Amino acid sequence: MLGWALTFLIIAIIAALLGFGGIAGAATGIAKIIFFVFIVLMLISLLANALRGKRPKL
């Protein structure tokens, strides 16, 4: 999921450099949403593992 956020961020940067403002804004918005969803899911996963008493696998 973090990879998708980075992909949309790169698309937004390239679109902004080429002058496509609408596409850059949309890709930036999508990247932000996916990034925050990733953060929330990561925190939920860490909390669930902490409550179970198991150490996360690295």
Rank of each mutant, 00 (worst) to 15 (best):
F36W: 12
T7W: 10
G19N: 04
G29H: 03
T7D: 11
L58F: 04
M42I: 07
G29L: 08
V37Y: 08
L18V: 10
L43H: 10
S45H: 11
I44A: 09
I11F: 12
K54H: 10
F35A: 15
I11M: 10
I23L: 15
I33P: 00
G25S: 14
G22V: 12
G29V: 03
G22L: 15
G3L: 07
K32M: 14
G21K: 14
R52V: 14
I30V: 11
I11L: 10
I39L: 15
G53Y: 07
F38A: 07
L58C: 00
G19R: 07
I34Y: 06
L46K: 12
A27E: 02
I30W: 00
I34S: 01
R55S: 08
G53F: 05
P56W: 07
L51Q: 08
M42D: 10
G22S: 12
M42R: 13
A50W: 09
V40K: 07
I44P: 00
G19Q: 05
L41Y: 05
F8R: 04
L9N: 12
F20W: 12
I34G: 01
L51P: 01
L18P: 00
A12R: 02
G19P: 06
L46E: 13
F36N: 06
V37S: 05
A27I: 06
F35V: 05
L6N: 13
L6F: 07
V40E: 09
L43T: 08
I39T: 04
I44D: 05
L17D: 04
L17E: 08
G19F: 06
A16N: 09
F20G: 09
L46W: 10
A24Q: 04
I33C: 02
G3S: 07
L17T: 04
L51Y: 05
V37H: 01
L18K: 12
K57M: 11
I10E: 15
A5Y: 04
L41D: 09
L18Y: 06
I13P: 00
G3D: 10
I11A: 09
G29C: 03
K32E: 02
A27W: 08
K57V: 15
A31C: 03
A26E: 13
A24R: 02
L41C: 05
F36P: 00
F20D: 13
L58E: 02
S45C: 03
R55H: 04
P56D: 04
V37M: 06
K54V: 14
M1S: 07
G25Q: 10
L2T: 03
L6H: 10
M42L: 14
F20Q: 14
A31L: 01
G25M: 12
K54T: 15
I11N: 07
G22W: 15
F20I: 13
T7H: 10
I44M: 10
A12W: 01
I10M: 08
M42Q: 09
K32L: 12
